[in-house]
Design a protein around this nucleic acid. Structure first.
Length: 389
DNA sequence: ACCTGGTCCCGGGCTCGGTTTT
DNA sequence: AAAACCGAGCCCGGGACCAGGT
């Protein structure tokens, strides 16, 4: 384990907490370098990327599958390995029959959830290729694409993974149009949940479909992550099976449930997981809900609103207006009621809340609705509190 | 008719990066 | 070299307007 990870553990671990060793290993939004049980999928992705190892670019591709099937896990793992220095010597060795050493295409991984404008998409690619520095704003979108263009003009190009493509405003076709000037210099691998036939531009791409996890593999995922992230023997096989059986092949939901269960046990000062913890952990992850990654990628003020929401007493949850007022009173947020209200409606629109229309008993006007969270609540609360804001 | 909840949109002002002026 | 200026994207505030009820 690297030193950074050791320091992180120490900062996260309370003085007397012996249950959880490393929250990152339980966090479904954090991907591990070696995903469990996805070997065949990794192979198919490597097959697709094969031209990269000869210094040329593969065709554009579309990786798709249901939520929590390991798409991000596999793609981010493979792409991070492409960038390691170990990849480079091989080209030097193979140069005997070639004129000169072959420079491999760069690989770039962009998370569509963290990108909500065209500007940010290109900026993200640019800053990835230049090692972190790039304008955050203050320049035009055209300037950013122009810089990308000049950066790629004298290189073997780049292969770009655009993860969570469903979250982007632009379809693959739009992105191609916008990047048309550097069409020969880049290959894009889109990743999404929507079947290719329903995505504009996707049917023309090489397709890699990822199925959901099987029950047994999901148990393996839980046991592997649990054994490294938790103290010894905390998670039993039966408990892992209990979680897996309710997760419907969704590794995100399963890990979020385990995360929630351990937080509950820890908060109560226990050193083992009880059946009730497991059950409550599962309950705190809505079926077919929104992923932790999406919620954590929200702008800071929206996360604050969500955090404030999670500590409201039930009496303030009967209507959006009541909830708005209560959040406005919270010390966590410093926003006008109008803005909080707008945020809440926007979050409901983004499926982060579900709006339930109340069966009004009296009064006039349109009946109010109350908000129910559609994201893993316990896990979000803990991760928010661990973060610095 | 009237009321309250919900949707939509846009202008102001902020921050950041680049450019021109001092 | 420093300072002043400018223009870009983005967040917040808020208002106009629509929807759904008595």
């Amino acid at each position: 384990m690297d030193i950074e990870a050791r320091i992180r553990r120490r900062r996260q671990r309370g003085t007397d907490q012996t249950l959880v060793l490393d929250y990152d290993l339980l966090n479904p939004a954090v991907h591990v370098p070696e995903p469990v049980g996805r070997g065949p999928v990794v192979e198919r992705l490597l097959d697709h990327l094969n031209p990269v190892f000869d210094g040329s670019l593969p065709p554009d591709g579309y990786v798709w599958g249901p939520p929590g099937s390991g798409k991000s896990a596999v793609v981010s793992a493979v792409f991070s390995h492409l960038e390691t220095p170990a990849m480079q010597p091989r080209t030097a060795i193979q140069t005997t029959t070639r004129a000169q050493s072959v420079e491999l295409p760069r690989s770039v991984y962009v998370n569509g959830r963290e990108v909500d404008s065209e500007f940010q998409l290109y900026r993200q690619i640019l800053s990835d290729m230049t090692g972190g520095d790039g304008p955050s704003r203050g320049v035009s979108t055209d300037t950013v694409t122009a810089r990308l263009q000049s950066l790629l003009s004298d290189r073997p190009g780049a292969v770009i993974a655009v993860d969570h493509a469903d979250a982007l405003e632009q379809s693959p076709t739009d992105i191609h149009a916008a990047l048309a000037t550097l069409d020969d210099a880049i290959a894009i691998v889109f990743i999404g949940q929507t079947p290719p036939s329903d995505v504009d531009g996707a049917p023309d791409l090489a397709e890699i479909e990822i199925p959901g996890y099987g029950q047994q593999v999901l148990i393996d995922v839980l046991m592997t992550r649990g054994s490294s992230g938790l103290a010894d023997d905390v998670l039993t096989y039966d408990q892992a099976r209990q979680i897996a059986s309710r997760a419907g092949g969704n590794a995100h939901d399963a890990l979020a449930a385990l995360f929630g269960a351990t937080v509950l046990a820890e908060d109560n000062g226990r050193e083992t997981l009880r059946s009730a913890d497991i059950e409550a952990g599962i309950e705190a992850v809505p079926k077919g809900g929104t992923s932790l990654g999406t919620v954590l990628a929200l702008a800071p003020n929206r996360r604050r609103v969500l955090r404030a929401f999670l500590e409201l007493d039930d009496t303030y949850l009967s209507s959006v207006s009541e909830t708005t007022e209560a959040i406005a009173d919270s010390t966590r947020v410093d926003l006008s009621t109008g803005t909080i209200r707008r945020f809440l409606y926007e979050l409901a629109d983004a499926d982060i809340f579900h709006r339930v229309t109340a069966e009004r008993t009296s009064g006039s006007g349109r009946p109010p609705s109350r908000l129910e969270p559609r994201f893993p609540t316990i896990a979000f609360r803990k991760l928010y509190d661990l973060g610095a804001d």
